[in-house]
């Protein structure tokens, strides 16, 4: 295992003549929680789209674990390599129950690979972690917004990912729910896992992030600790100050 989980190298993504990512480079290590912040349209979601294989970049590459170039792989192959991502808009399967979500997340394949007791254990563990034990048989479509966010987090962490990407996990949550999510993210931190969180809520970012990358117009504006971010004149100018 290399020290660097994700190495983003000279990434450019264009929509027409507009550059959503513009020669972007950054490195994210195992063991860290990295926050990516920046104004709307900075390219944060686009970056996660490239890493998870949904968007193909015009130029550049994304090295996973120092060896695998993700830009040529399918979404499914990337996921099977150990990367998982929660979408900005809560994306759950309305017609499936909570426990079915976790089962699908934990055991990849058309036929079950884990044996039944192992799968049950895993489902129980994950439901406990995301606090949905009492809702395990409800349909996802019936859940509240906050519960859907947690269900999606549970679904993506069920497989024990090496890279976990969360796109705005506390958008639309109450203060109490945000608090619990922060504790959850910290609890998921492990030496052999990299966690990438895109978020606008600065107090939340301050609580969870080891390091912060500020994106602006598809480029890195600043990288460092949250305290340094707050003190940086350029960041205050384009983002925090408004």
């Amino acid at each position: 295992m290399s020290l660097t989980a994700l190495l983003v190298d000279g990434l450019t993504v264009r929509f027409g003549s507009f550059r959503a990512l513009d020669d972007l480079s950054l490195a994210i290590d195992y063991g860290e929680v990295r926050a990516i912040i920046g104004p709307n349209g900075a390219g944060k979601t686009t970056l996660l789209d490239v890493i998870s294989g949904i968007t193909r970049p015009k130029q550049g590459r994304v090295l996973f674990d120092g060896a695998i170039d993700l830009t040529g792989l399918s979404e499914a192959a990337i996921a099977r390599a150990g990367l998982r991502r929660k979408f900005q808009k809560p994306s759950v399967f309305e017609g499936l129950s909570v426990r079915q979500h976790i089962a699908i997340g934990a055991d990849v394949g058309f036929r079950a690979r884990l044996d039944a007791p192992a799968l049950e254990d895993r489902i129980g563990e994950v439901l406990e972690t995301v606090g949905l034990v009492d809702h395990s048989n409800r349909l996802a479509g019936e859940l509240s917004h906050g519960q859907k966010q947690w269900l999606e987090i549970g679904m993506v962490l069920a497989s024990d990912p090496k890279v976990l990407m969360l796109d705005e996990p506390v958008a639309g949550l109450t203060d109490e729910e945000t608090e619990r999510t922060a504790a959850l993210v910290r609890a998921l931190k492990r030496p052999d896992r990299a966690i990438v969180v895109v978020e606008h809520d600065m107090d939340f970012v301050e609580r969870i992030a080891d390091r912060v990358t500020v994106l602006h117009e598809g480029r890195t504006l600043f990288e460092g600790s949250m305290a340094h971010v707050r003190a940086d004149a350029a960041v205050v100018e384009v983002y925090l100050g408004r």
């Binding site: 499914a76 990337i78 099977r80 998982r84 991502r85 017609g95 699908i104 058309f110 679904m155």
Partner: peptide
């Protein structure tokens, strides 16, 4: 059903839909 409800979500969890 998962494919019907959100195919991209399922693909990004490792399933070749």
């Amino acid at each position: 059903l998962a494919t019907r409800d959100d195919e991209t979500r399922l693909r990004t969890m490792g399933y070749e839909t």
